[in-house]
C-alpha cells in the first residue's frame, strides 16, 4: 500500500465570489503499515484532505497516487479505490440504514462486486474484529448504544477489505469507555491485521499514546510531520496555531522552569510517571 499526494491544492467554490482555499500545496507520503494521526483546528482542511484520499473530492491542483497510479486517470476504477482506501466519516453511525446490523455491514462489500459468500464472510469477520457479538447481528442498528453503533459503522468500512483505514474523528462525542474501545480497536487492526491506519483527532493525549506519526495542519498546509515525541516538543508553535499539547508536556515545561531537565518532554502519562520515578530513584541512590 502506498498513498502519495503530490503538491495537492483544493479550492472550494472555484470561480465564485465565495472562493476559499482548503488545501495549499500538500505533499505527503503514506507508507505500508503506518499509524498516523492528523491534528488541526476545525476548518484547517483535515476533512477535505481525507476525502481527497479516496477520490470523493477532486484536487484543484496536484496529483494523488495510490499504489503508484494516478487516481484521476480515466481508467482508474473509483469504486475499487474507495474499497481499498476505506474512509470512515465523522459520526459514521448516522449512515446506518439497513434493518439489521449484518445487512448494513454487507452493504459496502456488496458494492465492491465480491462473491456473495465472500461478502457474508467479510461482514462477519469485520463485526467480530470490532467486537460486536453474534447476538447483535440480526437486531436493528437503531437500538444499539452509541459506542456500538460507531463500531458497526466502522465494521461496514472494514468489510470492504481496505488496505488503509482512514477515520475522521472516530472518537468524537463518545464517553471515555467508548473512546478507549475505539482506540483499542485501531491498535488491534494495526498490530494484528497489519493495517495502515490514518485518523483525525482533537485529543492530544490519545494521539500521543497510539500514533507512530503525527501530522499537523494549519490553514490548509501540513506544518509539522514526525513521531509524537518530536512533534509535541513544538509547544509554542502548536499553541500559536490554536492547538494544544498533551498535558504532560505542559507539566514538563513547568518543571523545567523549576530546574528539572528532560532530554525530550514526555508525551504520555506512563512516560511522565517513568521519568519522575527515574529521577526519584536516581535521587535516592545518590544520597
Amino acid at each position: 500500500m502506498s498513498l502519495i499526494l503530490d503538491h495537492v491544492g483544493y479550492i472550494y467554490g472555484k470561480g465564485t465570489n465565495e472562493e476559499k482555499r482548503a488545501l495549499d500545496d500538500v505533499s505527503l507520503e503514506i507508507k505500508e503499515h503506518e499509524f498516523i494521526a492528523l491534528i488541526g483546528r476545525t476548518g484547517s482542511g483535515k476533512s477535505t484532505l481525507v476525502q481527497i484520499f479516496n477520490g470523493l473530492e477532486q484536487p484543484s491542483e496536484g496529483t494523488v497516487y495510490f499504489n503508484g497510479r494516478d487516481i484521476s486517470d480515466k481508467d482508474f476504477n473509483k469504486r475499487e479505490l474507495r474499497g481499498k482506501v476505506g474512509l470512515v466519516f465523522q459520526y459514521p453511525e448516522h449512515q446506518l440504514f439497513e434493518e439489521t446490523v449484518i445487512k448494513d455491514v454487507q452493504f459496502g462489500p456488496g458494492n465492491m462486486g465480491f462473491r456473495p459468500l465472500d461478502v457474508e464472510m467479510y461482514a462477519f469477520q469485520a463485526l467480530k474484529d470490532v467486537g460486536i457479538g453474534d447476538e447483535l447481528l440480526d437486531v436493528s442498528p437503531l437500538v444499539l448504544s452509541g459506542g456500538q453503533k460507531r463500531r458497526v459503522a466502522i465494521a461496514g468500512v472494514l468489510a470492504m477489505q481496505p488496505e488503509i483505514l482512514v477515520l475522521d474523528e472516530p472518537m468524537a462525542g463518545l464517553d471515555p469507555v467508548g473512546r478507549r474501545e475505539i482506540l483499542a480497536l485501531l491498535q488491534k487492526l494495526y498490530r494484528e491485521k497489519g493495517m495502515t491506519i490514518f485518523f483525525i483527532s482533537h485529543n492530544m493525549e490519545e494521539v500521543a499514546e497510539v500514533a507512530g506519526r503525527v501530522l499537523v495542519m494549519d490553514k490548509g498546509k501540513i506544518v509539522l510531520d514526525g513521531p509524537p515525541a518530536k512533534v509535541f516538543q513544538y509547544q509554542k508553535e502548536l499553541e500559536q496555531i490554536g492547538l494544544g499539547v498533551p498535558q504532560t508536556v505542559t507539566l514538563a515545561g513547568h518543571l523545567e522552569e523549576r530546574g528539572w531537565s528532560f532530554s525530550e518532554k514526555p508525551v504520555t502519562v506512563h512516560e511522565m510517571a517513568a521519568e519522575i520515578l527515574e529521577k526519584w530513584n536516581g535521587g535516592k541512590n545518590d544520597s
Binding site: L56, F89, Q95, L96, G108
Partner: peptide, 28 residues
C-alpha cells in the same frame, strides 16, 4: 459522501434502480 465511500452509486442505472439506490441516503 459517506455512502459513496462504501461504494454506493447514486448516478448510474435506470430510474427504478436509481430510486432503490437512494435508500441508503433517504433513510438515514
Amino acid at each position: 459522501k459517506a455512502q459513496m465511500a462504501r461504494g454506493a452509486d447514486f448516478e448510474s442505472g435506470n430510474i427504478l434502480r436509481k430510486l432503490k439506490n437512494m435508500l441508503p441516503l433517504v433513510l438515514p
